[in-house]
Simulated scan of single mutants.
Amino acid sequence: MKINHHYSELQDSYLFANIAQKVKVYQEAHPDQHMYRMGIGDVSLPLAPSVIAALHQGVDDQAHQETFHGYLPEVGYQPLREAIQNEYAAQGIDLDVNDIFVSSGASDELGDILHLFDRDAVVMIMEPAYPAYVDANVMDGRKIIHYDGGVLPKPDPDLHPDLIYICSPNNPTGSVMTREVLKEWVDFANATDAVIIFDAAYKAFIEEDLPKSIFEIEGAKTCAIEICSFSKTAGFTGTRLGYTIVPHELVREDMVLHDMWVRNRTTRTNGVSYIIQRGAMAIFTEQGKKEWQANIAVYKQNAKYLMAALDEVGITYVGGKNAPYIWLDCPNGMTGWEFFDYLLNEVQIIGTPGEGFGACGEHNFRLSCFGDPEDTKEAGRRLVALLKK
């Protein structure tokens, strides 16, 4: 019997396991201490009331013959696809509704989409990056270019990847690509026959005049796939829903990737629950938008608390304004892990060492803005008191 030996090439998933173990040991020794959790990128506020009402309606629909739904189209519930299409149209982006595929979440799609590409394809991952980009490709045995181009990396004409991952706003740095930089990547991909996998999971946090979709860029439909999530937009981390856009204009080696993806989805999935998709419909209503935008405003205020603290002590950082993450330079030449231990032991703040997002993050640290507002405010106060000593 032969198995996939590429799994043996994976680096140990030590990051969050080590964090959990360090926190566990500390809490056992200090059971009365309150922990200020700024590490995990998970939302803390409940789903919007409109979404909850729509989920209940979805359940009620299943109780009556005239509104019951069995299997839905594997590519997604048509009213939801149309709602997504209309949202893009409001931003000036013309999408074919058939190019929109409802998924069980961006994390799932980021791995599943790789079925469209040969295992000999060369992948460029701009680091620091979401670790799953690397692991999903290692499992398939692909060659990976680990590319550190800075906070806003630009194409290197000497590199020739087949697949290019772009996350904007970026996890972990919180930086957002400008239209000019994104256009350089689109032109590069079209000129080299590469395909961009554009992760837009955090687009709802953008407040400045910056691109929320790669399809704002001319030429993107012939080189890009966009993967989006309702997790950070509307709190669906535990509910699991997202969508993927594969334009029918995207063709490589005489193969239409849209048609390939239709076949993939209709073969490999039975679609997403009607109840969950029914709940997501509320995200696009006027009241629903007000409610989830109010939640995002809370997370953005959390970012302001932390940015004000870092400004006061003179620590350099990026992110926070257009994203729910702050990527900071560790003080006094510390590594990310050294700074983690320092914060944990001195002020009980839990963040994420930059090493977990690639070797280039060794002297960086990520703070998440998804925590409790009062805890975040207190964490900012503690940071100032500690780093001013």
Score class of each variant (00 low, 15 high):
Asn98His: 09
Tyr243Cys: 08
Glu355Thr: 10
Tyr14Gln: 09
Tyr317Phe: 12
Leu328Ile: 12
Ser8Gln: 11
Asp187Pro: 03
Gln287Cys: 06
Glu218Arg: 00
Leu159Trp: 03
Thr233Tyr: 04
His5Tyr: 12
Ala191Arg: 11
Thr267Glu: 12
Leu241His: 03
Gln11His: 10
Val102Pro: 04
Val313Asn: 01
Glu226Arg: 01
His160Val: 10
Val138Met: 09
Asn264Trp: 11
Lys304Ile: 13
Cys228Thr: 07
Ile3Trp: 13
His69Ala: 09
Val313Lys: 00
Ser213Ala: 08
Leu163Phe: 04
Tyr130Trp: 12
Arg265Ile: 14
Val123Cys: 05
Phe370Trp: 09
Val97Ile: 14
Ala379Pro: 02
Gly356Glu: 02
Pro324Glu: 05
Gly41Asn: 11
Tyr77Phe: 15
Asn322Val: 06
Lys377Phe: 08
Cys167Thr: 11
Ile93Val: 14
Cys360Pro: 01
Ala129Pro: 04
Thr222Lys: 14
Ala54Glu: 11
Ala132Asn: 08
Thr335Ile: 07
Ile164Glu: 04
Gln57Pro: 01
Ile145Met: 09
Asp140Pro: 00
Gln11Glu: 15
Leu257Ile: 09
Glu207Ser: 10
Thr316Trp: 03
Pro128Asn: 02
Phe101Val: 02
Val176Gln: 02
Asp187Thr: 10
Gln91Gly: 06
Lys290Tyr: 02
Gly336Val: 06
Gln78Asp: 13
Cys369His: 02
Leu387Lys: 02
Thr222Leu: 04
Ala220Arg: 04
Tyr325Arg: 00
Ile214Thr: 01
Ile3Thr: 14
Cys228Pro: 01
Phe230Gly: 04
Leu387Arg: 00
Tyr243Asn: 07
Asn332Trp: 05
Phe340Val: 11
Gly219Lys: 02
Tyr165Lys: 00
Ile349Tyr: 00
Val151Asp: 12
Lys321Asp: 12
Lys183Gln: 15
Ala20His: 09
Pro211Cys: 06
Tyr317His: 05
Thr239His: 13
Ala282Leu: 08
Arg142Cys: 07
Asp311Glu: 10
Glu74Gly: 08
Thr233Arg: 12
Ile166Gly: 04
Phe236His: 12
Pro46Arg: 08
Leu257Lys: 05
Trp261Arg: 03
Asn264Ala: 08
Lys2Asp: 14
Gly380Gln: 01
Thr192Gln: 11
Tyr130Thr: 15
Ser50Asp: 06
Met177Lys: 01
Leu182Arg: 01
Met255Trp: 08
Asn137Leu: 05
Asp96Asn: 15
Thr266Asp: 14
Cys228Ala: 11
Gln21Phe: 04
Tyr202Glu: 08
Leu241Cys: 14
Val181Trp: 00
Phe68Met: 09
Gly70Leu: 08
Met255Asp: 15
Pro49Ser: 11
Glu362Val: 06
Ser231Met: 14
Arg268Phe: 14
Asp372Asn: 15
Glu109Cys: 06
Arg381Ser: 06
Arg265Cys: 12
Gln301Met: 10
Lys321Pro: 01
Ile19Glu: 03
Lys212Pro: 07
Ile283Glu: 10
Thr233Trp: 06
Leu343Gly: 05
Val138Phe: 06
Ala63Asn: 07
Gln11Ala: 13
Asp108Arg: 02
Glu180His: 06
Met38Leu: 15
Pro46Ala: 10
